[in-house]
Structures are given as structure tokens and as C-alpha cells.
């Protein structure tokens, strides 16, 4: 059978539509189907990064065991964890906090990591910057101690205490 649309290629897709008992048939080739935007099951557009992710997200041992638990839900936007796992996308920035318990294994699988080490916004990130400064000073202090330069190490220790006070740690 030839494609009804172009009449050139063989028809490989056969659609039967029944609307109010009225039956129409369409026999077309794949490239004409694409042009018309007819739905080809399993073809282009059917698979996205979000589908792939939801595969990863669905891997949840507690739900697999069939244990009935109250749905985990973001208190801000109302998205449930199971909605998130179907869509592969968060509803709002607070979802990260509310789903935190389940998030680390997922992020580990996607990124191999769970903690951001890159750029920090100038205004919102003051605390993070201080924290990183403390981490850096602690490392320096350790190496000073290893070199038995206790005087400089003590100075760093005081500086670290000051910074920790600043951010209330």
C-alpha cells in the first residue's frame, strides 16, 4: 500500500480513528506522519531527560516494600514526591528542603556529588562565603600544625573563631 499523503513511499503507519461511530482510516509513511504531526508511539519526542530521571527517582526501597506512608509533600507549593518522581522536575525552590531526605542519593547518581562548590551570589551568599573561608583557614591551620608553626596556627584559630561567631555556627 502506498502512502496516502505523498503517494511515493510505502505506507508503514495505519491509523484508525472512530469518532461517534464514524470510522476514518489513514495510511501514511513515517515522514509524512512527522510532517502532519501524527502521534507515532515510541517515536520522536516520546523520551526525554525527565523520563530518564523519573526512572531513577522511582527507585525507592521504602515504597517498593509496599509500606503505606503519608505522602511526602512540599509545604510551599504542594507538590508530592511521587509527582516529582513522575515529572522529574521540582515545583518550587522549597521542594529541595522538603524532599531533602530522598534527594542526596538521587543527586549522587546524577552528579556524583551532593554539595555545590561553585559560584555564590554576591548578596544572598554572604554566609556561604564565610563558611568556605572557614574551611580554607582550617586546612591552612592543619598544615601549619603539621609544620609545627604553632604561633601562626593559633592566629588562624582565633580568626576562625571570629568568623564562626559571625555566622552563629
Amino acid at each position: 500500500m502506498q502512502c496516502q499523503e505523498c503517494g511515493k513511499r510505502p505506507a508503514t503507519l495505519h491509523f484508525t480513528k472512530i469518532v461517534n461511530g464514524e470510522k476514518t482510516e489513514l495510511h501514511i509513511c513515517e515522514s509524512c506522519a512527522r510532517e502532519r504531526g501524527e502521534l507515532i508511539p515510541g517515536a520522536s519526542g516520546g523520551f526525554s531527560i525527565h523520563n530518564l530521571l523519573s526512572g531513577l527517582l522511582d527507585f525507592d526501597p521504602s515504597s517498593a516494600a509496599g509500606a503505606k506512608q503519608p505522602a511526602l509533600r512540599c509545604e510551599m507549593c504542594g507538590m508530592t514526591y511521587s509527582q516529582f518522581s513522575k515529572m522529574g522536575r521540582f515545583g518550587c525552590s522549597h521542594c529541595y528542603k522538603h524532599f531533602a531526605d530522598r534527594l542526596d542519593p538521587l543527586l549522587k547518581r546524577v552528579h556524583g556529588n551532593t554539595v555545590h562548590v561553585g559560584k555564590v551570589p554576591k548578596r544572598a551568599g554572604g554566609r556561604v562565603k564565610t563558611k568556605r573561608e572557614i574551611e580554607k583557614l582550617k586546612k591552612e591551620m592543619q598544615s601549619l600544625i603539621a609544620r609545627e608553626d604553632f604561633e601562626s596556627a593559633a592566629q588562624l584559630r582565633d580568626r576562625i573563631r571570629e568568623l564562626e561567631k559571625e555566622i552563629g555556627a
Binding site: 522529574g88 525552590s93 551568599g125
Partner: peptide
Amino acid sequence: DYAFDEKYGYLTSCPTNVGT
């Protein structure tokens, strides 16, 4: 004001973009 988290960095709709 950006959505930014101390641990996760810049928060994005899809977890494949979070962080930087």
C-alpha cells in the same frame, strides 16, 4: 533575589541543572 541554597547551590526546576 535568586533561589540559592548553601548546600545545593543555585536551585533549578530540574535536578540535572542544580548547583552551578
